[in-house]
Write a protein that binds this DNA or RNA. Sequence first.
DNA 1: CAAATGTTTTTTTACGATAAAAGACATTAA
DNA 2: TTAATGTCTTTTATCGTAAAAAAACATTTG
Lengths: 311, 311
Amino acid sequence: MSKSNNVYKDAYNRCLRLLEETSNLPSEPELGATLGVSRTTVRGILARMAENGLIAWDKRDKTVLRTPKEEDFFPEEETDSLSQIIERSFMRRLLAEGAEAGMQINELELAREIGVGTTSVREFLIRFSRFGLIEKRRNSHWVLKGFTHAFALELADIREMFELRSAAAFVALPDDSPVWADLDRLEGEHHALARDIANRYPEFSELDERFHRLIHSASRNRFIVDFYDVIAMIFHYHYQWNKAGQRSRNETAVAEHLAYIAALKSRDAAKVEAACRKHLTSARQTLLDSTPEGRQNVLAKRPAATGQYIV
Amino acid sequence: MSKSNNVYKDAYNRCLRLLEETSNLPSEPELGATLGVSRTTVRGILARMAENGLIAWDKRDKTVLRTPKEEDFFPEEETDSLSQIIERSFMRRLLAEGAEAGMQINELELAREIGVGTTSVREFLIRFSRFGLIEKRRNSHWVLKGFTHAFALELADIREMFELRSAAAFVALPDDSPVWADLDRLEGEHHALARDIANRYPEFSELDERFHRLIHSASRNRFIVDFYDVIAMIFHYHYQWNKAGQRSRNETAVAEHLAYIAALKSRDAAKVEAACRKHLTSARQTLLDSTPEGRQNVLAKRPAATGQYIV
DNA sequence: CAAATGTTTTTTTACGATAAAAGACATTAA
DNA sequence: TTAATGTCTTTTATCGTAAAAAAACATTTG
């Protein structure tokens, strides 16, 4: 079992969806481009589809014979790449209770528990190390630094520096820059989400990422753009497994985003800075509250806070 | 040839140096701590030293019999770790002429040319990717983004943000913080270097790194501290293979550092910012001049500049 | 009995091998 | 004669394995 064919399976599933919309599939190179895979994989997909009676394939002719059924799809879990599997498994442990700073990380043990080779785990850890949550001892084990209060603070500090700078760069972009159209589109999506927040609040995190990435892209600096990966990763996993108060948090954030977008469109640097600061401050608080130390504080303070603090 | 024993060889060489200073080696755990290796390796070293008549080893007694000779040492090239070998080889190509942005990087070819396994090359590239000079296409090759003008600008921008912030944090540190003693020591080393700059200017780059790392450490932010790795890497390789004008550059930098140190010691925030800005601006220019585009400009401008510009 | 040495086990590091996937080249059809 | 298909080659992703190095455990010594 050298390498799984998840690329093929995932592309096959996505190709099944295309089948529902047309009566003839396009050329192999075109299909490869839309699915993001090579012709080799495309031909593999077409071969299977022909075999299973989904299409009639003869050279350029790829006629759709029937719409795909549930059982035509590969099971979801077989379409994940190995690195996704490892990442998910690792993050589950990291954000679970009991993952304390200073703990050792054992490559071999991780590999065995996830059921993969050591090489893949090693490569994952190396890639993951740039997020600042783990650290390597030369010729020895990895050390968990943990999703701590300190980590959240350091992350939030850099985020603020970078986003304030990016937002300032954003308003300086010329009128004909495509970012303004992107911003308009995002504004519309925010409004749509706000109107139906009660049902659609889980969709916010994806919108949040696209919004902040758009702003960061204005910095035209690869280090700033890349840094958003750290934030996105933390948010992605954290909120996936910690839904407490998610709706109200997202509702607040949508409102802050709309104010922020309005400030950007006004092109008033002072307004932008104020709106950006305000949003990032509440984002920082949310992040801090979600660390193990933060959760304790929230629990401890809640009774005392009733009627005493606005914040 | 599964794994080279460079850790052992390097530690052995370093242990030979210790032999010159004492008549009795310390306990195995202590030796391990000083050499930064495990007891297993220490025992390997002691066994060889005993075998070669360097020491008489009987349990706790490790009497030095003779001082090491030239031929007792392992050759230097055998003490490098595989990742160092790959890094050096890769950087040589990257900074050589002809390494243009957009080029593909072939893992297999690299591995064959360097004479190592593909896994090691892969892991190196993953680690190296955080420097922003290469980028991975999923399921496909790496793309060289190149040491370009744009890269130098983006790097310098972040460096300035981070170092200004760190320097500001530095002056806010209490009097009893150990950084002040470190700063005094570094100041002394700068003066010593300045007095004999004609001979010792090549020593500057090491001092430069220690100085800037000290300042960055005041930020108490892992992302800022880690970012200095990017700068250190670029400087390390760049200046190793591009000695033109090195002496005058270093002379200027020493003077700027001394002014910067004086400003830090004055604890005057405005002075610190000015000194820091000044130094970083000239560092930025040096970096820009060293990119392929920058070198062309320097060559092109040089004749015109005679008597016309001070800069 | 604490710290060292002796011994054994585990983990990390690195390679070669193999299947999946990409890419290159040759051939054919509109 | 361009763009597709058919075929073949190269490269990437991943595993099993083995040596180096670390770490754990057992035993001895001051």
